[in-house]
Amino acid sequence: MQRELTQIELLQELSGVAEQNVNRHLSMTRDWNPHDYVPWDEGRNFSALGGADWDPAQSQLSDVARAAMITNLLTEDNLPSYHREIADNFSMDHAWGHWVGRWTAEENRHGIAMRDYLLVTRAVDPVKLEEFRMTHMGNGATSEGHTGAELGDRSILHLVSYVTFQELATRVSHRNTGKACNDPTADKLLQRIAADENLHMIFYRNICGAALDLAPDQALRAIADIVTGFQMPGLGMPDFRRNGVLMAKHGIYDLRQHRDEVVMPVLRKWKIFEREDFGAVGEQARDELAVFLADLEVQAAKFEEMRDRSLAREAARRERTGLAV
């Protein structure tokens, strides 16, 4: 039977892997400046400085793109909560601390650039955006959308499992949002952000992969907990469910993408269903994963069927309206 490692033991045993992956990240990442991705010549003052306040007619984004941009930005805004949780779990010592600082600084660019783009182009209501930011940051966030009290038995393994999937999910969402904006500037910006998210995902994925080799049962138990109960960190932000439905309906982020582009690639990378080093705890967790993934496939297929019918009805309604005119 595999002995369960303590949080301190896990940090100590994985510190070498963390150092290797910090160095790997620094060798691959490319620094960039948020101001280079903002069309400043489109900007003008709001009423406090003698200009005009926002009007919906000023936005060039579709309802879907606007909902996705707001959701993605508010997710980035809660960086202080994410920093606190990662720092508490990783510690600020040695390579762990270096990563926490570097990751936080890189993530902060995302919110800066996205907010500047949205305000300069008048793509969203700035007053409502600020109200949403205050509410969301006031509520805070933890991995999986839980409160701190609900995370009492969670460990570094749960955290690195969660952020592996979450970073990849965010990459998919940003990339598809860029396409939905129908604006080359927004697309270029969100491609840049998505590239960062992918490198962040690789760091966490490699740490979790090393944990699987170190403590297979313990790591897989954490992975199964995360996959079967996964929630995006935006859970609880204003209009999250409404915007989430819009995003799913129009291909920004849906169950199919979650299963096929996020969960399955990571599980395959870790060779979860090929490994032979699991004990009883790990085998049970793997069985739970298999059942969950089969059900997720069924749910994704049902959602796609309902979505296709809904979109077809909307297209027919638009056509009838156009003919009537």
Rank of each mutant, 00 (worst) to 15 (best):
Q2T: 05
R3A: 12
L10I: 00
G16Q: 08
V17R: 11
V17I: 14
E19A: 15
Q20M: 09
N21T: 01
R24F: 12
L26C: 08
M28H: 15
T29V: 13
T29W: 14
P39L: 03
W40A: 09
D41Y: 05
L49W: 12
G50I: 05
G51W: 06
Q58E: 13
D63G: 07
V64T: 15
R66Y: 01
R66E: 15
E76D: 14
N78T: 10
L79H: 02
R84T: 10
R84Y: 09
E85Y: 07
I86W: 09
I86R: 11
F90N: 02
D93L: 06
G101M: 08
R102I: 02
T104F: 08
R109D: 03
H110N: 08
G111I: 03
G111N: 03
M114D: 05
R115S: 05
L119H: 04
R122F: 02
V124F: 00
F132P: 00
E144N: 11
H146F: 11
T147Y: 09
G148Q: 12
A149P: 05
R154W: 13
R154T: 04
S155W: 03
H158R: 03
L159I: 08
Y162E: 05
V163E: 09
Q166N: 09
Q166M: 07
L168Q: 12
R175E: 11
R175C: 00
R192H: 01
A194L: 03
A195L: 10
N198Q: 14
R205E: 14
A210Y: 09
A215Q: 05
P216G: 08
D217S: 08
A219M: 08
I223Q: 09
G244A: 06
G244N: 07
V245Y: 11
M247F: 05
M247C: 13
K249A: 14
I252W: 06
L255H: 14
R259F: 06
E276T: 15
G282Y: 10
D287C: 04
D295V: 09
F303C: 05
M306T: 12
S310C: 07
R313C: 01
